[in-house]
Design a protein around this nucleic acid. Sequence first.
DNA 1: TCACTAGTGCGACAGCAGTTGCATTAAGAT
DNA 2: ATCTTAATGCAACTGCTGTCGCACTAGTGA
Lengths: 206, 206
Amino acid sequence: MSSAPPSGRTRPGGRTARTRAQVLAAVSAELAEHGFDALTVDSVAARSGVHRTTVYRRWRDVGGLLTDLLDATSDDDWQPADTGSLRGDLAALNREIQQSLTERPSIAAALIAASFRSEEAARALRRLWDDRYGRCELVVERAVQRGELPPGTDARALLVTATAPLYHQLVLLGTPPDPRLPEHAAATAALAARAGAFTSGDVEGE
Amino acid sequence: MSSAPPSGRTRPGGRTARTRAQVLAAVSAELAEHGFDALTVDSVAARSGVHRTTVYRRWRDVGGLLTDLLDATSDDDWQPADTGSLRGDLAALNREIQQSLTERPSIAAALIAASFRSEEAARALRRLWDDRYGRCELVVERAVQRGELPPGTDARALLVTATAPLYHQLVLLGTPPDPRLPEHAAATAALAARAGAFTSGDVEGE
DNA sequence: TCACTAGTGCGACAGCAGTTGCATTAAGAT
DNA sequence: ATCTTAATGCAACTGCTGTCGCACTAGTGA
């Protein structure tokens, strides 16, 4: 998961690396100044000093640029916070999500927008989410070990339920960010999970 | 909320109405045959037999076309199902949402995609959601009257929590539709709501 | 130091999106 | 029937996106 598709003996040396650095810096700067809507391959190329054709060849489109920027800036040893309680862990996670969707410039928000135009961006985003949700399953495992949750809890379903309201409000509904929403969504999901809502597909009261 | 912006004495008679019908039919057909990605103003114009310029003038862009199609096909007297229980009502609502996002062609999915390119589509979509969520508050009121929920329950927050997992899974995460998800998300939200998770901002255990 | 070639620069090109000015048609009013 | 003008048709234009062939630069290995 590094930069662009290799084609045989790649040559990651001086100039190539410099080109990539210049282009990614330009993407970041354009994103900060004009936002995602104004982000075009041409503007990035002009700003970076690299030729249009080179950008098109190596990154294909705006989605490719954002994907590479994401790979370059993401820390590969990310792990969920350990606050000692399921609710606290989920709240911390939700705060991170709200932060990443609200900050300016938001690479996450830009990537989501780009995923509707670029198949590469869509795949990159799904890989990212799959990776993150996978790591977060640890949160659920810890809660089970603490006896907070029943064994057999569907970690992925719980995590999606806890985080979905944030994405829905901020990305789709376009609601202004509510500082209490991360905690509230976490608390709600934790409450339902404790009641066994994510265990063996059956919900209390069914 | 009818068709296009009027500019004085509008003239909704024969030819204008015929043009609109032809264009909307073409949008629907293009959407069905080639999907949203291939939906361009030009292709719609060509198929409808109406001139490019006319489409650009009356609908501005793809978002405007989808907005008008939505207005034309939406029933203004929609109301949530009354199944006798909160959980049942939410499940029915979620089934409708899953249906609208999964059917081919999905105007809803296309409109969501378009909302990232067209400001008009974005506003139309938010109006639609605001309208729907507003009508669905009735579901929560009924539940309160039945004694299923505590008074003072935040209807909008509950509804968003109940429906968010569907949008998140289907639209953002790109997960294939799970036939049990509508019921499960509804049951989870109903469970949390009964425990007071959406009452006066405080959650049980805080 | 030298040869090989991946990567880049460059210009030209096709194609689509969206706009503008003007001519034409037809809806609605008298 | 006649007039007014909203709505449409038409053609030309700008600007942006993405591609292609060719020349050239500079890593990389010998």
